[in-house]
Design a protein around this nucleic acid. Structure first.
Lengths: 332, 332
DNA sequence: TTGTAGGCGTTATCAT
DNA sequence: ATGATAACGCCTACAA
């Protein structure tokens, strides 16, 4: 494990000079720089950024905390974040909460122990203990939320206009001639799912469509019973001609059942999902869905965090991205 | 940012004693421990594990390097790794290579800079520069490969018996009466894909099935042209009655095209995929596939790495997990 | 059981 | 342009 000390010994230079070389300080002659780099290469020197972090108070590591790695949306956003951060010379460490607020707390504390320079979070479905966010504020760790955020907080955020997403999806179904649309709703604890539902309801209202409570269809966590419930819904209301699901997977449930009942999609019933998950394009028929602009969200989140890290004056911003409807065969 | 120094000042004890408390040293009286913990809580003390790492040479962080976070298989394995490692009190940091060997190199160096205690890798499709693995060996960083590994290396590994997977998938199709099966092959640079193909070929051989080169169908990276090529294959060989794809997504391609040609699945043509990706169960018909035992692989990989970290004697092991066929409607 | 002191690898502040 | 030195927060002989 060669250190700058070894390089100093071998070159006859001082520690300070070696350090300057690796920090791209302009105050070092080309000749010395050459010599240092040569010896460093010979010694297979690798800077110890832990030590640097200890001294400088900056770790150049930022923590990313998301509910689930194995989720198309989060994965894409993280990739966007990663890309930007790498350009800035930052490493990111990713942890998942698996939708547990206990784990969320644990991982955040773990981030703090690692002295991360900043934190990016998308919260769990379980309501988060608000004290943790206060703690983060006390510690003055820059924090940016994306997509999912706690009901009350005092940090910056980057979100999608989920209300708009729900509305354009529903409006599209209406434009395609649907008269009796059902919304497959998501978890009530998650604000973005609420927003999508409100978008749905508002679209119906704006078009003077009738609305009954059965048009908000709530799912359980059990796949099998979900399927049965949807099946019952269809027999109870045979004139249903459209579904807007809060997530692509749930759109898939519905498609699955409709296919097994030999219902013609899209001629008898049209379907729209949410998320533009990668499989949606491969389905038969391909699924109309709402694109969340994951990559852009990631980049924007990263940029926002960097602004907070670089400037001490704390200006909290709320940025809202606009979703985009991707029309495919399931509604056309 | 309270440190043990602050706690020492407040309690009137020495640094050493405080340190001992947080390292669960038995050599500290219950009374002192109580007092220290109390003051620590008041001061919102968070141990600086970076500093501890610098001093002790142990970071309690392990690096996980995978091609893509947003991939069902890798995501699940990582979750398995994470679970086990957390039990051992280790943090994991995840990075992705996006199948680029340059990035792979970069991330590994970044791991070394962070002084990780161990590294878990699944390599890229691009052949990796073998010097990096030598470097890791020189540095004595414990390394365990999973699933994808370099052709030549000297570390432990945990893999799936992909040959077996290819064989049972093919045998299943043969048992179901298929006479003319085509394999949708994967990237030639990836050993696991080669193995799946060999399993396919061996199954044909064992059953005395004829074999022609067109039965190995190679994909390009372009989705659209892939579809066209598969379409052509089907018109050139109208008696094809079975497909074994090296991955579920490619099985999906085939299903998609067959559906658009109104081919009866599974009565006319049967399909088997590989991976047991989450969407396979939701397709219509549901897709028969080979399960890779992701979670178990993750746990086993983690355990193997821990063994290497804890004992200095280096015993390289090669562990092979057995895949399992999941029979669904697409072949039944 | 507790304290003292040196050092892990780096950077920052002075000097020179 | 370069050097000397203290300090970051913690651990660990060794001493008491």
């Amino acid at each position: 494990m060669a250190s700058i000390k070894d390089i100093a010994a071998r070159t006859g230079l001082s520690l300070a000079t070696i350090s300057r070389v690796f920090n791209d300080s302009p105050k070092v002659s080309a000749k010395t720089r050459q010599k240092v780099l040569k010896v460093a290469a010979e010694l297979h020197y690798v800077p110890n950024i832990g030590a640097a972090a200890l001294r400088s108070g900056k770790s150049r590591v930022i923590g990313v905390l998301i509910p689930e790695i194995n989720n198309h949306f989060f994965g894409e956003v993280v990739t966007g974040i990663e890309k930007k951060m790498k350009n800035w010379g930052y490493n990111i460490i990713i942890s998942q909460t698996h939708e547990s607020s206990d784990l969320e707390l644990e991982m955040l504390e773990s981030f703090m122990k690692l002295n991360v320079d900043g934190i990016i979070i998308s919260t769990t479905k379980e309501p988060t203990d608000p004290t943790i966010f206060k703690k983060l504020k006390d510690k003055k760790v820059p924090v940016v939320f994306f997509d999912r955020l706690p009901p009350v907080h005092s940090h910056s955020s980057v979100i999608l206009d989920d209300h708009e997403g729900g509305q354009i999806a529903t409006q599209h179904l209406i434009d395609q001639g649907c008269k009796h649309i059902v919304h497959i709703a998501g978890d009530k604890n998650v604000s973005i799912f609420q927003q999508r539902q409100r978008g749905f309801e508002d679209a119906l209202r704006l078009n003077n469509h009738p609305f009954d409570s059965h048009q908000i269809f709530e799912l359980t966590t059990d796949t099998k019973s979900n399927k049965k419930l949807i099946q019952k819904l269809l027999t109870d209301h045979p004139d249903i001609d459209g579904f807007f699901a809060h997530g692509d997977y749930y759109a898939l449930y519905v498609m699955d059942i409709l296919k097994s009942l030999n219902v013609d999609i899209p001629n008898k019933i049209k379907i729209v999902g949410f998320g533009n998950t990668d499989f949606t394009d491969h389905l038969q028929p391909s699924l109309t869905t709402v694109d969340q602009n994951c990559h852009q969200m990631g980049q924007l989140t990263a940029e926002t965090l960097m602004k907070h890290i670089e400037s001490d004056e704390i200006i909290h911003s709320k940025q809202v991205l606009t979703p985009k409807l991707v029309v495919r065969d399931s509604s056309n």
